[in-house]
Design a protein around this nucleic acid. Structure first.
Length: 415
RNA sequence: GCGACCGUGGUGUAACGGUUAACACCGCAGAUUGUGGUCCUGCUGAUCCGGGUUCAAUUCCCGGCGGUCGCCCCA
């Protein structure tokens, strides 16, 4: 709130400040993402958040709204149209297309970029979020699809979720496109169909049936539809690989027009949060944008906001621990320097230590160390320096142990 | 872009249209010039902005801005 001409301390609409505790959680999420991606042989890449606006206009008749209304797009000082990337896939496709001859395939890449959408903020949706992007380029084999979905599964497990906490719903654009050609649907009807499927579960089944009939498709084709061949094969493979909470779901569409084959979404099974957490699919034609031949690709994106909600509902977020292992409270003249010497020696031994700068009373120093979540504390004063003995206290319990200054590092390492 | 609900200290809440806007937490200071998390004392600090109705507005009305939730769309 801006008041009396003072600047507001609120962050810009729809974006978040990450105070140390939130940042620690953020880094926790990222480190699990990195660990899973790297252990499967994926290499990390990165790029600027600025892209030329035309990158998002090129294709996607269906996605005009995203390109024109839901991006941050502006003119730079040289009258170039610039967009803050709303997603990473066009960027990575651009990068791969640019170095196509130099890269060896199959290519496994991942990144954790921040992406921007100019939208109305609401639960689970903000204007800037971080999104793990995992992509596998250069393979048409169904094993590639299986690998990507398995990675999504592994990630969820790595976050601490059980197979009962989530469900992987798979469909295929091939299946959908088959229906569309079979009924020779117009572009308008196709769009309607996509919208209808996407809203499945949000409208009553009567309404849905009526709308389907209007388009010219009988509801039975969905309800009784058997999984298409590619999906069946995929599900079988996944099961063999230890992923047994995936199933065919004809209603999965995914918003982006560039998907060409399989599409999938990971759903939260919690009754109060029955929503799509993230998803992805196969996009084999995106390279055409850059005048390249088609390049098979499959991948997914996982946003930090929805995964945070998922973890918080299930208390799967770790508690915060201070990066400081031992705090040095000081009392008396010239003791700050003495404490800093001790801290330096501790750091050289790989023990993180911070010194109170002595502006406050000793009691206050201890209180603030505890509030910061620092596990251990020692007081440095004349007595300690002269005797070479300190009392090391574990703040959570209040227990103290007297030890020689010289054996402090080995003592702390034992924790 | 559309709709519903809501805007009171840093946070969470209170106040029939009527004195000095209350309480709790947090913060700061003290009780104690070398020892925290319990208790005690004191202090700082708020009615989103602009109009209107009224003797009188935190309270009622209108507009703006902001927030939350939904729709659209989507991650």
């Amino acid at each position: 709130m801006a008041r009396n001409g003072k600047l507001s301390t609120d962050p810009y609409k729809g974006v978040r400040d990450f105070y140390p505790k939130e940042q620690a959680l953020q880094q926790h999420l990222f480190s699990i993402m990195r660990q899973v991606a790297q252990s499967a042989g994926y290499e990390e890449y990165s790029a600027s958040l600025l892209e030329p606006a035309e990158l998002y206009r090129a294709k996607g008749s269906e996605n005009e709204e995203i390109a024109t209304q839901q991006t941050y797009t502006f003119l730079d000082r040289g009258d170039r149209e610039v967009t803050l990337r709303p997603e990473m896939t066009p960027t990575v496709a651009r990068m791969v297309a640019a170095r196509r001859r130099d890269l060896s395939f199959p290519l496994r890449w991942y990144s954790i970029p921040n992406v921007f959408r100019y939208e109305r903020p609401q639960r689970g949706r903000v204007r800037e979020h971080w999104q793990l992007n995992i992509d596998l380029f250069g393979s048409e084999h169904i094993a590639a699809d299986a690998e990507i979905i398995l990675l999504a599964h592994t990630l969820m497990r790595a976050f601490g979720a059980t197979e009962n906490d989530f469900e992987i719903r798979i469909s295929s654009r091939g299946f959908l496109n088959g229906l569309i050609t079979q009924h020779s649907l117009s572009e308008e009807s196709t769009k309607k169909l996509h919208g209808l499927l996407d809203r499945h579960g949000k409208v009553s089944s009567q309404e849905e049936e009526a709308s389907l009939k209007e388009i010219g498709i009988s509801p039975q084709e969905f309800v009784a539809s058997v999984a298409p061949k590619d999906v069946v094969e995929l599900l079988t493979t996944l099961k063999e690989l230890g992923c047994s909470n995936a199933r065919f779901e004809p209603y999965i569409v995914r918003g982006f027009d560039y998907y060409t084959g399989l599409v999938f979404e990971v759903y939260d099974t919690h009754p109060d949060n029955n929503r799509s957490l993230f998803g992805g699919g196969r996009y084999d034609n995106l390279m055409e944008l850059f005048g390249e031949e088609t390049m098979p690709a499959v991948g997914f994106g996982m946003g930090d906001v929805t995964i945070r909600d998922f973890l918080e509902v299930r208390s799967l977020t770790p508690s915060y621990t201070s990066p400081i292992k031992v705090y040095l409270a000081v009392t008396g003249e010239d003791m700050v320097t003495e404490a800093m010497k001790i801290a330096s020696r501790l750091r050289a031994q790989g023990i993180s230590a911070a010194v109170d700068l002595g502006d406050k009373k000793l009691g206050e120093q201890i209180k603030s160390a505890d509030k910061k979540g620092i596990p251990h504390l020692i007081v440095i004063g004349r007595n300690e320096i002269d005797s070479g003995m300190v009392a090391i206290r574990t703040l959570a319990t209040g227990e103290e142990e007297k030890i020689a200054l010289t054996s402090l590092p080995s003592f702390l390492k034992s924790f």
